[in-house]
Design a protein around this nucleic acid. Structure first.
Length: 485
RNA sequence: GGCCCCUUCGUCUAGUCAGGUCUAGGACACCAGGUUUUCAUCCUGGCGACAGGGGUUCAAAUCCCCUAGGGGUCACCA
């Protein structure tokens, strides 16, 4: 069996879509593992929805995820060009071929006639679709009118009887009666091909062996099968993967879910976490692991194991997964990500991050959490009120003395390391005769300005002697002033 | 509405192809405990599903049929 060739064919019509990444993940992972090729083709045959910036955005987003391609518009390949708008002559030639064999015909119906037809069919509750009005126009007439510049499209001539059958590798045989298949427009009046034509022509030209695409294409596959037959080409294997869903089970949409890959990046999700999450939306590891990397996925993934249920997007699980992946990274790596994403905390540097990251790591879910959780380290303690220093089940009036004692004990610490710090605070606590929270909570506020923080010993250690003592003294003064007033 | 596809805990899923080992397993979320200086992590436990009905069979989540529900599609969009 020859090496597989698979592709994705996104449309440059807006932000890079999470569904594109979902399908790309399955395609690329499998093909690469099998020693095959993963192609990127830009489906830009719709001029009305075309957005120039979109193509570059798609490239960037896919590369961010590590879903890079072996052949594509920007890197070329043996079958270039990979942009459908640049393959016009090929489609025109194939259309002539279909016209010649009678597999397609020219249709001169106006938009007005078509919409009137649709209305009528709707009113009579008939099956919607083209009525074959232009099917019987003699070829010579059609050619003459086309040559005279008469506006028209080219349609697929679907056989009148019988049915078209193909196999979806995930579902088994699928049969559709030909009368249910519309005479699909293959070439629009502007001379551009529709998806159906361009897709089949290109897949044949590129030698695509497996078509792994979204389920929304399942029902138009018979049209494609008819085209393969008209071209005398071998059918690829089809895998239609379930659509990602909104909460209400409708297909995932901008209105109800974040669908732009850029959004996930801006939110500080890790590529490996998003990939892991996407993989989980349609596949389960045979070993039962839920948190895994690309290597694990690549090793065990099989196309035929994609599940058919309609997966609903659950961002909560993504958050959890992202935290898991974050914790697998070391400080240097996280620093690199922060820099790459422009998410470095204010005032941060690599050395500071090397020190602080291990201390806050298990409290992180997304990249921006780093800035939020380290503000007290790279800057000052968050602003607080004197009242915030009040210990649990305690009194603000005791705070100046409590903090004062802590400061004194800390003063003698040397070296400034965890065990000595811990011992010093334990001594202070014993002197004071208070419970841990009554000493630690005021300290926590004094040092970080927040009720949630890493362990207090770690905080003191990473803050260093000078800053720690300063903040404790400042807090003591603050509490003292409030008590006096 | 026609056609096509799908249907296991709230969510993602394992199990379905080769019926028994399934009083249906795991994960997220949630709840309750534990560890603990807060938060978080971590550990333990709990809650919680085979859409319904027929059939086939000694035996069905697994096979067949029907019903219901959901989705997709019916564009000169992809």
């Amino acid at each position: 069996m020859s090496a597989p060739r698979v592709r994705i064919a996104p449309s440059p019509t807006g932000d890079p879509h999470v569904g594109t990444a979902y399908v790309a993940l399955f395609n690329r992972t499998w093909a690469t593992r099998e020693g095959g090729s993963f192609l990127l083709r830009i489906d830009d045959t719709d001029r009305s929805r075309y957005q120039a910036s979109s193509e570059e955005q798609i490239f960037r987003a896919l590369r961010w995820l590590g879903l890079d391609w072996d052949e594509g518009p920007d890197i070329g390949g043996p079958h270039a060009p990979y942009r459908q708008s640049e393959r016009q002559e090929m489609y025109a030639e194939k259309i002539r071929e279909l016209l010649g064999t009678g597999a397609a015909y020219r249709c001169f119906c106006t938009q007005e006639r078509l919409s009137a037809l649709r209305e009528e069919q709707n009113a009579r509750k008939e099956r919607l679709g083209y009525d074959g009005h232009c099917r019987s126009i003699p070829i010579a007439d059609g050619e003459r009118r086309a040559a005279a510049g008469e506006t028209h499209v080219v349609r697929l001539r679907v056989p009148e009887g019988g049915s078209t059958t193909f196999r979806d590798e995930l579902r088994g045989p699928i049969e559709v009666r030909n009368e249910e298949i519309d005479d699909q427009v293959l070439m629009k009046s502007d001379g551009f091909p529709t998806y159906h034509l361009a897709n089949v022509v290109d897949d044949i030209a590129f030698g695509v062996t497996e078509v792994v695409r979204a389920e929304e294409w399942l029902i138009s596959t018979p049209k494609h099968v008819l085209l393969y037959a008209a071209f005398g080409a071998t059918l690829p294997r089809f895998f239609h993967v379930p659509l990602l869903r909104n909460q209400d089970k409708s297909k995932i949409s901008k209105r109800k879910n974040p669908v732009s890959l850029d959004w996930y990046r801006e939110q500080g999700y890790l590529p490996e976490a998003l990939l892991n999450f996407l993989a989980l939306m349609g596949w389960a590891s045979p070993s039962g692991e839920e948190v895994f990397d690309r290597e694990h996925f690549a090793e065990h993934f099989r196309l035929e194991d994609i599940s058919l249920g309609a997966p609903i997007f659950d961002l909560e699980k993504l958050d959890w997964l992202n935290g898991q992946h974050l914790r697998r990274l070391d400080a240097a790596e996280i620093t690199a990500r922060l820099e790459a994403e422009g998410m470095m905390p204010e005032g941060a540097d690599a050395e500071g991050l090397r020190v602080i990251l291990p201390v806050v790591l298990e409290r992180l879910h997304r990249l921006p959490d780093v800035a939020e959780k380290t503000r007290w380290f790279f800057g000052e303690a968050d602003p607080y009120e004197a009242a915030d220093l009040t210990p649990p089940k305690g009194d603000l009036r005791d705070v100046p003395a409590t903090l004062g004692r802590a400061e004194e004990c800390l003063r003698g610490v040397d070296p400034w390391e965890l065990p000595a710090i811990e011992a010093a605070l334990e001594a202070a606590r014993a002197d004071l005769g208070v419970k841990k929270p009554q000493l630690f909570m005021p300290l926590r506020i004094a040092l970080t300005g927040r009720k949630d923080s890493p362990g207090i010993f770690e905080v003191i250690e990473v803050l260093g002697r000078e800053r720690s003592l300063e903040r404790i003294a400042a807090a003591a003064r603050c509490a003292g002033e409030a008590v006096d007033a």
